[in-house]
Design a protein around this nucleic acid. Structure first.
Lengths: 215, 215, 215, 215
DNA sequence: GATGAATGAGCCTTCATTCAT
DNA sequence: GATGAATGAAGGCTCATTCAT
């Protein structure tokens, strides 16, 4: 009986730990969405989570780790949105287009998630700690995997001719990501051209590159 | 003689102003290259330039303006490097490949310049002030212009079939930029595939997309 | 026993918090009295309080809040001094005179408190935040209240005929306040007339205005 | 001839000096009105006046001196407005009321002038330099003089009984000034009572005090 | 007379992190 | 496990004044 009590204790402990972590992430997320990346400090997170700052540091060893958890969430959400499209009954080329549009939509509608994903990608100083690396890998690769699948489906359907679908998928994703980064240039370098049109054009171009590689 | 003296004074003033501005930018650049973006503060710039902080603000009205000047330098350098390639005696498709490789090289060899260009592009908070917008426009557009020219040359040579070379150029540049952003994912999402190979692949793909649009 | 220990902890925490706040206010007050309003900065307060600047901000969320606390102290002191006179066994008219003299004395003997009260009143930029408003209201109104009472007592005693004692009280206070502001003009506009005599005259005049409104 | 030339030179010099001084004051005034007291710096004045900062210091030996000149302007304007009322064909009591209202209007419509007059009156640190003292004396006394005259006229007309019209005038002015200082307390201590009503009440009270001193 | 570059102490405020309890 | 007080360097920026030319 004493043993089972200890077991129960351990389990409860674990459950509570998870709850606390969630509680912290919830606070961090709501602040992130409210005030943006720069304006979210640990003290604020603690206040909103109704915990002491020390407690935050007990559950997460740095601010970066909290943001990394949020990034994971963002990647998860992104994946689920892309996944939904992957499962639609569409031709491979149309699917790629929808994926492209979906990523653009995601970057707009979930700007804060997008920003935090970018934060780790674009910040010169921040280095991925191994732990984080694994997570990004898992999520990022899954998204790339969906595109690979789509390309493979297109190849099987005779629409595409892809020799290295993985590289193609990465290229596709890179193109989307790069163009979204250009958002700020809308009125300057992009010469007022609609951002959406340019992205559509890029998707077309990419798809075109997948067709009949030898003419 | 008195007049010429006065003239000389004005000229000297102007020359000295330019020198001071350079002196400040030199200090800022060396700090940027040494310690990175985050660690470069006005106070440090002043210290290294052996000037009072007030003097810095006499020549540049904000930190952003200094960074913007550095960004301009970076864009200038980037342009000159792309420009050199544009003038090489190469077929249009080879030229595009070289441009792509050159951008990747630039982002590696001039990492700090690349970072500062990115700083304005990727930072959620920073908004382009009109003045900066104009500069980015000028430099960014010139680079896009070089690509447009190359695509047009390819079209004229019968290599490409581009209906909207401007959009194609932006797409090309976006692809390069996006893939370079993925650098950090080299060992994870990119599955260990060489960054260079992926970029080469992407360039191939892009060029392929420019050929025979209708098979 | 464990519970009582926890209780003790909380209580001690609270006590220490109060102590720290006092410590900070003490430092701020001593600086204010020593060097005046302009020369009192947060950094100096921290230094004198032997605390880090961050600690100051842990207890007070802005410089204004510290000053506001000091202002409150001043108002409290002022009230207590006026209150003492209110309780003296004097005729209403004599009481008003004593109140007037007391305010003048206060402005001289507690010049720094007077200055800081004025700081919020006369500074063009400073706006009362709601919180501060409430405090000023409470204290200011209590002082006005004492005068109202005195006027009412005079009316009941047949000395005065006040139809709107509140407005009379405000008028009275305004007169005192305005004349004290003229202190600097002593040797110029006031033509060397003793400041005290002028104030006495004004009080006489005010009291006279309260008597027999219709002759 | 040489003498007359020198004379002419001297005169021109003097004229130009005056012009420069005006030019500086114009710039300072326009900045004062635009940005308020705190936000007006010597550098900005210099820029707007299209002069070097050094030149400013050649004509005015400190920032305070410039503001003092502006204060003088304000007093001048105030005097002229009170003066206009003094010359109206009104009974003495009505005239006093109009003067009171006019001061309130002045403090509202010419807030910046009022602020700068107050700046010297209410700032703890600022001491009147003898030079400035004389000026304030001249202008302030003239305004007091107008009130004295009005009171005297009232006395002559049998409306008032003033034994010491100078002190009465100062009292009157003090009351007005003090009440205007209370502006910020409108919604708190003044209990929402209209500022104008209170001032009217105070004027009534004052006038009442002037009548039949012995009942 | 006129200039304007140079100063640098000083301003208020933020924040990730630590550690004694 | 949990707390929250304490830190203090660092951030960007302002400004009256001086002085060599």
């Amino acid at each position: 009986m004493s043993a089972s009590t200890v077991m129960g204790l351990k389990e409860r402990r674990q459950r509570e730990r998870k709850q606390r972590r969630d509680q912290i992430i919830d606070a961090a997320r709501s602040l992130l969405f409210e005030k943006g990346l720069h304006a979210t400090s640990i003290n604020q997170i603690a206040k909103r989570a109704e915990l002491g700052v020390g407690t935050i540091y007990f559950y997460y060893k740095s601010k970066e780790e909290i943001f990394s958890a949020l990034q994971e969430e963002g990647l998860e959400l992104l994946f689920s949105r892309i996944f939904k499209i992957s499962n639609m009954n569409l031709a491979a080329d149309e699917k790629l287009r929808e994926i492209g549009l979906e990523y653009m939509r995601f970057s707009k509608e979930n700007r804060d998630y997008y920003d935090i994903i970018n934060y780790f990608l674009a910040s010169p100083g921040i280095i991925f700690v191994p732990n984080l690396k694994r997570k990004v890998d898992r999520h990022g690769s899954r998204i790339i995997g969906l595109i690979v699948e789509t390309i493979n489906a297109g190849t099987r359907a005779g629409l595409f001719q892809s020799i290295n679908p993985r590289r193609d998928a990465i290229t596709f994703w890179g193109t989307l990501h790069g163009l979204i980064q250009f958002r700020k240039l809308k009125d300057t370098v992009l010469a007022g051209d609609s951002h959406k049109n340019i992205l559509n054009h890029a998707v077309d171009h990419f798809i075109n590159g997948l067709r009949n590689r030898i003419s």
